[in-house]
Design a protein around this nucleic acid. Structure first.
Length: 575
DNA sequence: GCCGTTTTCGGCCCGACTGTTTTCAGTCG
């Protein structure tokens, strides 16, 4: 039974939660949390490392004890420590930690004083007024618990970055109009371009008496004010999105921006470096004793700890500090590096705009070529193409290009990969194309070995260029299908074909760590907007964010190539 | 529980806000 990294991470997270409720050494708890994050974020399979006898304790934050626990979980599928903890505490109790305002200590108190073990029991206790009878708990706390544990109380959800970004734009515009406000910018996971955003972190600089906090808390879209002090406010918008605003003086702008951009793990690593230099970093600056030595810009903060500037998308404590120290930071790809778009639809299948309109908009977006890639016949509901309609479109594109429209249109297809790994259209028509994108659109439930084999077989087809949205996940809606991605990437390298980074906001597929894996394997990533209308070219910006999080540079992305360099690369896959 | 060009022991990031308190603990990011 294969053990996924995510499962090991979940075990360590639960151990950390239970240890915390038990009141264990906080640093031991942190060690389990750090290990959970390290394992969960890792591109490599821990199980494979164990099988190869690799030294697990060379992983950051993994020592002798944790290495032994990992080996135990991989080999036996069980974890003795977790089983022991689950006997000492009711397993459902970790759910209580998710209630806003409840941390480990209060959960422990509620458990000991009231015998509360589940959300339902906690709700009952609050309803009966038993919570406020405990020392340290008052009526407000009890009321907050009561409301947060109502059966219909929804868990805060993470919002796709494509939704969060526009919300931030309008909030920032409003902040900039408040008297005394000098700057207002987005920080947090939005600035790091994470694919989902838990809450919006905004940072403003303002002169002394600016009413910025007050105006923000009374904004027209604000449903609830969670907190509002002199430098910080937290609100919930009508959409359910939580927004935190921090206000600092402009001399602290850089330090505050670094601090509130995070990630938390990156900040901790940074402060540790500062400690070594007898410096202290907080959101107001970098300090040597009482003297402030940096903080007006982010660059100054990094310089103070002996590092070059690190791009926000890299700040996850996934090796960027070490890379910065060694002067080996990547020069991350930028939107302006993209020369073309390799995946889009017109209204000939399920898109909304004509080829002419798509081409004009792409040109206006600074692209030099696009590939039209309609669906194939298997996707009947998307009006997928059969060979006859595809032949017709091929002629249409040829005529279009003859008119010298200022942008080159490549002939492609997004062809379905059938259950057995065959493609949905015959070679006789595929051979007339410039590129063939293969996509899995049904049978997401195949077991790992079959699903992997299906994709590997598709990649071996005579005409196959790019594997579309390789994992099939839809953020927050559908899990990725179960595949051996490292094996697929290895085969892609051998075959000379490419993997897509699909820019649709709900897809952003590949993930950031998968992009890193592709880069490590030497497989070029093809960025595709998967545009279904001329408005969708904006999504390319999201894919660029994801690519940057995956440490991709210009050279790692197929469609940064000029057309004359691209053509031979595509032709090699059409053998 | 991890980690070490100061250390194999003794450290481990830092501050704001709230609620329940008469000076602070707990939570959060």
């Amino acid at each position: 039974m294969p053990v996924q990294n995510a499962e090991i991470a979940a075990v360590f997270s639960e151990i950390a939660d239970l240890l915390e409720i038990e009141g264990a050494n906080p640093f031991r708890i942190r060690a389990y949390r750090n290990a959970a994050r390290t394992i969960g974020d890792m591109g490599r399979s821990v199980q494979a490392m164990v099988a190869k006898g690799a030294d697990l304790d060379r992983l950051p934050g993994i020592g002798t004890d944790l290495a032994a626990r990992i080996t135990e979980i991989v080999n036996t599928g069980r974890c003795g420590l977790l089983e022991r903890l689950r006997k000492e505490l009711p397993p459902a109790i970790t759910e209580l930690l998710k209630v806003p305002g409840l941390g480990a200590k209060r959960v422990r108190t509620l458990h000991h004083e009231l015998g509360v073990n589940t959300i339902e029991e906690l709700h009952q206790a609050a309803a009966q007024g038993r919570v406020q009878a405990i020392p340290g708990f008052g009526p407000k706390t009890q009321q907050a618990i009561f409301e947060a544990t109502l059966p219909h109380a929804k868990e805060p959800r993470r919002v796709p970055v494509g939704e969060a970004a526009p919300a931030a734009v309008s909030l920032l515009a409003a902040l900039r109009k408040v008297p005394g406000v000098e700057q207002a910018v987005a920080a947090g996971s939005l600035r790091r371009r994470r694919e989902t955003v838990g809450d919006l972190d905004l940072l403003a600089t303002a002169k002394g008496e600016s009413p910025v906090i007050e105006r923000f808390a009374h904004g027209e879209d604000v449903a609830q004010v969670l907190a509002a002090g002199s430098t910080r406010a937290s609100v919930v918008l009508n959409s359910g999105l939580q927004v935190d605003l921090r206000v600092v003086e402009s001399k602290s702008f850089g330090a505050a921006l670094a601090y509130f951009t995070g990630s938390k793990a990156h900040n901790i690593a940074l402060r540790r470096l500062a400690q070594e230099r007898r410096l202290k970093i907080n959101e107001y600056g970098v300090f040597k004793g009482r003297q402030r030595v940096a903080g007006d810009t982010e660059e100054s903060v990094y310089r103070a700890v002996g590092l070059p500037y690190i791009e926000p998308e890299l700040r996850e404590d996934r090796g960027e500090i070490e890379a910065a120290r060694a002067k080996r930071l990547p020069r991350l790809i930028q939107r302006s590096d993209l020369r073309g778009d390799l995946h889009l639809h017109t209204r000939d299948s399920d898109g909304h705009d004509t080829l002419q309109a798509m081409a004009e908009t792409a040109l206006a977006c600074g692209l030099q070529y696009i590939a039209v890639t309609e669906h194939s016949r298997r996707l009947a509901m998307a009006r997928g193409f059969d060979p006859v309609r595809l032949a017709k479109q091929i002629d249409q594109i040829d005529r279009f290009n003859e008119r010298k429209p200022g942008i080159a249109v490549l002939k492609g297809i997004e062809v379905d990969i059938l259950d057995d790994g065959e493609l949905d259209l015959p070679d006789s028509i595929l051979q007339r194309l410039d590129l063939v994108i293969g996509a899995v659109h049904q049978r997401f439930d195949l077991p790992r070995a079959k699903q992997t084999d299906r994709i590997l077989r598709a990649m071996e087809q005579r005409y196959f260029t790019i594997l579309a949205h390789p994992t099939g996940r839809l953020i927050g809606e559908r899990e990725p299908y179960d595949i051996d991605l490292p094996q697929i990437l290895r085969r892609a390298k051998q075959r000379g074909c490419f993997v897509e980074l699909n820019a649709q906001p709900a897809r952003l597929d590949l993930t950031d760590t998968a992009c890193q894996m592709a880069k490590a394997e030497g497989v070029l990533v093809a960025i595709g907007s998967d545009a279904h209308s001329s408005l969708d070219f904006d999504h390319l910006e999201l894919a660029i964010g994801q690519a940057r999080r995956g440490w991709l540079e210009k050279g790692d992305v197929l469609n940064t190539r000029a057309l004359r360099e691209l053509r031979p690369l595509l032709a090699r896959t059409m053998r």
